[in-house]
């Protein structure tokens, strides 16, 4: 890192935490196989769109 890019006088900017893409991808895989194991389980099914939406937000955001 170049010294010129950091000024000690500049307070650190609070960045939002970066989504953990690999954890979200793992959740997608687990959710899919969870649905295959229990295709009529409303809780498993409810996760099917949600985990993809979360990963979409992380990938496209």
């Amino acid at each position: 890192m170049s010294e010129t890019t950091v000024s000690p006088a500049t307070p650190p900017t609070a960045l939002p935490p970066r989504p953990d893409v690999s954890a979200l991808q793992q959740a997608v895989v687990e959710t899919f196989f969870g649905i295959i194991q229990a295709p009529d389980d409303p809780e498993a099914l409810a996760g099917g769109a949600r985990v993809l939406a979360e990963l979409d937000a992380a990938l496209d955001g």
């Binding site: 997608v28 959710t31 899919f32 649905i35 295959i36 295709p39 498993a44 099914l45 996760g47 099917g48 769109a49 985990v51 993809l52 939406a53 979409d56």
Partner: peptide
């Protein structure tokens, strides 16, 4: 129909007798 959905995708395989 609507957003992408793993449940819907899994049911493609269910309709195909895969599980």
């Amino acid at each position: 129909q609507g957003s992408a959905d793993l449940g819907a995708f899994a049911h493609v395989f269910r309709a195909a007798n895969a599980f």
